[in-house]
């Protein structure tokens, strides 16, 4: 059957490509949090693979497809959204929810409406709020009894503590979930994905752009919301800019924009829709961060927009060739 040749692209190539792009961020988390991040990631990946294998083999009775890399990726992304000192049994529960509930119960790869790693993460966040929001301080390399501290966003939200400067946020020496701290590493990974054409620019650019513009406006119209810790200068525009950059670099935004929101299965199917989806995520993220009761909203924003995706797919169509203008 025509065509008789194929590009040689495969699910494996894409999945392992994303994993490769996550390596720099993983190295940063190793440096910042020590063995804890390795332990959490390993437990998460192994339990995701195990659940996928068991469910496919014994419940669905199909050929297990754990080698395609999608379960490994879910495991890594889940781990990246967890604090590096999380007890192992909570991680296993998270992996079960991610693979068992969010992915397999909908029919496996390609059919899940919500991003499995995020469903796992949000489930844990709601079920174990204390453990999930107690982040070890950077440089505390112990898995078991690290001193803990808040994330920059937590500080901003709760109006306490000394906010880190932008350069340490770029490098990642700040508190937070293990994969979200090294901004440079994440950007590097994201650019690799873009370069390899594993993801396209629409989603990350529209998310980051929306967050940047929105927070910049907020910084300009109500300068008092960024009063803590940031370097004070006379120029309000510079303040607003710092504030917007702070939002871009903090929390799970970069991780979310490059690695989670771009998940193929749960994002819209054409460039136009993807831009709408990205703008939606950006808006919801900032709304939750500024006006919600959680300091961070990327996970919720992505999940909400995942839910809107089928609607976008139905109403937003790609640009057709030879469209008849009405």
């Amino acid at each position: 059957m025509a065509p008789h040749i194929h590009s040689g692209d495969s699910i494996e190539k894409k999945m392992y490509g994303v994993l490769l792009a996550l390596i720099p961020a993983f190295l940063v988390s190793l440096y910042v949090f020590g063995w804890g991040s390795l332990i959490v990631t390993a437990i998460s990946v192994v339990s995701c693979l195990t659940f996928e294998y068991l469910i496919q083999k014994f419940l669905l009775k199909v050929k297990p497809s754990i080698t395609d890399g999608s379960a490994i990726l879910t495991g890594v992304l889940l781990a990246f959204n967890l604090p590096s000192n999380l007890p192992f049994w909570i991680i296993i529960i998270g992996a079960f929810v991610a693979i068992g509930v969010a992915k397999m119960s909908f029919g496996g790869l390609g059919n899940n409406p919500f991003n499995p790693a995020l469903v796992g993460r949000v489930f844990l966040l709601i079920s174990f709020p204390v453990q999930m929001t107690t982040w070890p301080l950077p440089g505390e390399h112990s898995y078991i009894d690290a001193t803990t501290g808040a994330t920059p966003l937590g500080m901003l939200h709760g109006h306490f503590g000394q906010l880190p400067d932008l350069s340490s946020m770029m490098l990642g020496t700040i508190g937070g979930s293990l994969g979200e701290v090294g901004a440079i590493a994440l950007i590097f990974g994201g650019l690799y994905l873009l370069f390899k054409r594993i993801i396209t620019w629409q989603i990350p650019v529209s998310i980051l752009g929306t967050v940047f513009v929105f927070t910049l406006i907020m910084g300009l119209v109500s300068p008092d919301i960024y009063h803590i810790g940031l370097i004070k200068t006379a120029c309000p525009a510079f303040h607003a800019l710092t504030y917007a950059l702070f939002h871009l670099l903090s929390g799970g935004l970069l991780l979310g924009a490059f690695f989670m929101a771009t998940d193929y299965v749960t994002s819209p199917m054409n460039p136009r829709g993807q831009i709408i989806y990205g703008i939606g995520i950006g808006l919801i993220t900032v709304l939750i961060r500024l006006f919600g009761s959680y300091p961070e909203g990327v996970s919720f924003a992505i999940l909400i927009m995942n839910g809107v995706t089928p609607l976008i797919n139905t109403y937003v169509k790609p640009k057709r060739f030879g469209e008849v203008k009405k």
């Binding site: 692209d9 699910i11 894409k14 497809s65 395609d68 999608s70 029919g107 496996g108 790869l109 390609g110 059919n111 396209t200 193929y264 299965v265 749960t266 994002s267 199917m269 054409n270 460039p271 993807q274 790609p318 057709r320 060739f321 030879g322």
Partner: peptide, 15 residues
């Protein structure tokens, strides 16, 4: 394999 909804086909389609 399952469609992973990667949009490659949509982006490749010249129509």
């Amino acid at each position: 394999k399952n469609c992973i909804r990667c949009t490659k086909c949509v982006r490749a389609c010249p129509m």
